[in-house]
Nucleic acid binder design. Structure first.
Lengths: 115, 115
DNA sequence: TTAATATATGAACGTTCGTTCAGCTATTCA
DNA sequence: TGAATAGCTGAACGAACGTTCATATATTAA
């Protein structure tokens, strides 16, 4: 147990990482890019969203170095930047799987830990 | 690579988990509880925050089953609920360590991946 | 019972966030 | 050149979030 109280700065940085992951659209994009490299229009089509909305989210993922991209003609192909992202993503999926009935963010069973 | 496009529901649930982790105060609380069980007032003192503010955040962590607590007299002792939380936390710390200069959420080096 | 302590809770304020909409740049094809 | 395509960006609106403040509950001590 080597952990100690996080400094305010480190806590802010770490919160920034989780904040980027804390959006359904961005998580679905990551789930797509976990399989293969994709262009914006394919992602937009898969998510049934406008290319604009997807592009905004890709910008966030790009700025925080969770995804990288390469340009080929007028297309931009996106992929995960490194496998830390993938690890964090798959680990969180495991966590969700261990939650009884998927209790996070949705309706919880009565008589739970609160109240 | 067994991952596929996340459903809207799963993405929402997963985003909920990350959202809970995406707050500096809650992360600092987790960093404290990674060491030992603590009461609200000790956490408040360690973070130099009001017990009220801490209690609000503990409620969020409690509702999402990231921490558990036991009551002893008028004190409430909190601890991490299971080690999935700790794993996710330590893994994210690793990720931050691998970022050049802690680029997430803070000032980034010029000429980076954006723009 | 009264006072003090430890924690929990509800309302509200200011801030942050994700989407939509409109407009922009860059590239390709005729 | 002009039109069409792929993607990017800024403004703005509504929703969600974290803190503060005041108050409420529960436990202990006098």
């Amino acid at each position: 147990m080597r952990e100690r109280l996080l400094s305010s700065g480190d806590a802010r940085d770490l919160a920034g990482l989780f904040q980027v992951m804390a959006d359904p659209t961005r998580l679905r994009i990551i789930s797509l890019l976990a399989e293969t490299e994709l262009c914006v229009c394919d992602i937009a089509a898969a998510l049934e969203m406008t290319p604009s909305a997807v592009s905004h989210q890709l910008r966030v993922l790009r700025m925080t170095q969770l995804v990288k991209f390469r340009k080929e003609g007028r297309m931009a192909y996106y992929s995960l930047d490194d496998d830390h992202v993938l690890k964090l993503y798959t680990q969180s999926l495991d966590h969700l799987g261990h939650m009884p009935g998927g209790t996070i963010g949705s309706v919880r069973k009565p008589g739970g830990p609160d109240r």
